[in-house]
Nucleic acid binder design. Sequence first.
DNA 1: GTACATTTGTGCGTATGTATG
DNA 2: TCATACATACGCACAAATGTA
Lengths: 136, 136
Amino acid sequence: VTIDPRSYEPTYVQLAGLIRAAIERGNLAPGALLPSEASLVQEHGVSRETARRAIALLRNEGRIVTRPGRGSYVRGVTDTDVVYVSREVQVATRMPSAHERQQLELPEGTPVLVVSRPGHEEQVLPGDRTIIEFQD
Amino acid sequence: VTIDPRSYEPTYVQLAGLIRAAIERGNLAPGALLPSEASLVQEHGVSRETARRAIALLRNEGRIVTRPGRGSYVRGVTDTDVVYVSREVQVATRMPSAHERQQLELPEGTPVLVVSRPGHEEQVLPGDRTIIEFQD
DNA sequence: GTACATTTGTGCGTATGTATG
DNA sequence: TCATACATACGCACAAATGTA
């Protein structure tokens, strides 16, 4: 209802905003199933393309995961492992390659942490369930 | 030529692969302009939709930036600031909100580093130009 | 300033394939 | 088998951004 096709803001951004707000309000709790594409099309009077773009936006923000044939779910806070690293390390972040995504079982919109230590191989850690602390 | 529409791999993923390979070969150097959507459509015999998806894939990997009205450019290695943190901190990563993206001037496909210290406010750092090191 | 060409952005429609239960 | 839901891919049209003549 709050979608205005003549706004300066693209329709799919507005739609994503509505869903994002519902998530942040807790109206869509972690694990909850989002309305299907067809529902969004019906209820907001937009094309499927527009609905899919809104969903893709949230997916790339790491807020939801989409399972083909099922739907999109609100991502919960995953249990995080704390990784202790020594003082000589450098920590950076980036998006994973497709291969790393598969390897680490990362959903779209999830970065990785890269821990480098001189003379050692880089360590690539899943960004959605890793916290780094320093330790001697 | 190396694109097979009947492959198990979606056309847009194959096309993205070709471009990614060109980047990694150095055939498309940092700063270089990618072929326009129209060129990709012409030369590979795909729809614009497919070409755009391939480009979006690379953008979400953080490999290219797209400037409306101009085209897509290969991202170079940005100069990185080294941020020194004390031993009590925790370091995590995630995708930025739209607001943070604007604030930090982050291209799409760029995560942020989040540095937390008990009793202090979280520090959100641009993931494309920050490396964290430990210091007393 | 204006007009134009180029390029990307948005939005719609359609069809078919794949995944799930 | 069947219904539902998402994925891929094509087509079209118009808008907005950019740079240039």
